[in-house]
């Protein structure tokens, strides 16, 4: 099965060199072929499984908890910060 690696890479925001495109194109096609085998099973009357826990309606009350972390910690991984904000390249001047 053929795969449009360029498009997939773009959607995943991954920069690929031409050599990599070539390489991953082959690998991904092989993976798809492998998965393709599942189509041999007749699943016409089987409900799709999206979740394997068997749970449903796992909800919580609307009460504030103690999960909140301090500002310094929240932004500690950001390479650039200013006045408690995380700074990123301007999104409107790309």
């Amino acid at each position: 099965m053929k795969i449009d690696v360029k498009r997939v890479a773009k959607l995943a925001s991954l920069p690929l060199s031409e050599a990599e495109e070539e390489k991953y194109s082959k690998q991904l096609s092989k993976i798809l072929d492998y998965i393709e085998q599942l189509n041999e099973v007749d699943t016409l009357d089987v409900e799709p499984t999206f979740n394997v826990t068997g749970l449903s309606n796992a909800m919580r009350e609307d009460q504030v908890g103690d999960c909140t972390i301090p500002q310094e910690e929240a932004i500690s991984n950001a390479p650039v910060k200013k006045d408690g904000f995380i700074v990123t390249k301007g999104v409107f001047n790309e």
Binding site: A74, K82, D83, G84, F85, I86, V87, T88, K89, G90, V91, F92, N93
Partner: peptide
């Protein structure tokens, strides 16, 4: 918040 060529993020 867009400010002088950069964007400030508040989560």
């Amino acid at each position: 918040t867009h400010q002088g060529g950069e964007s400030l993020i508040d989560f």
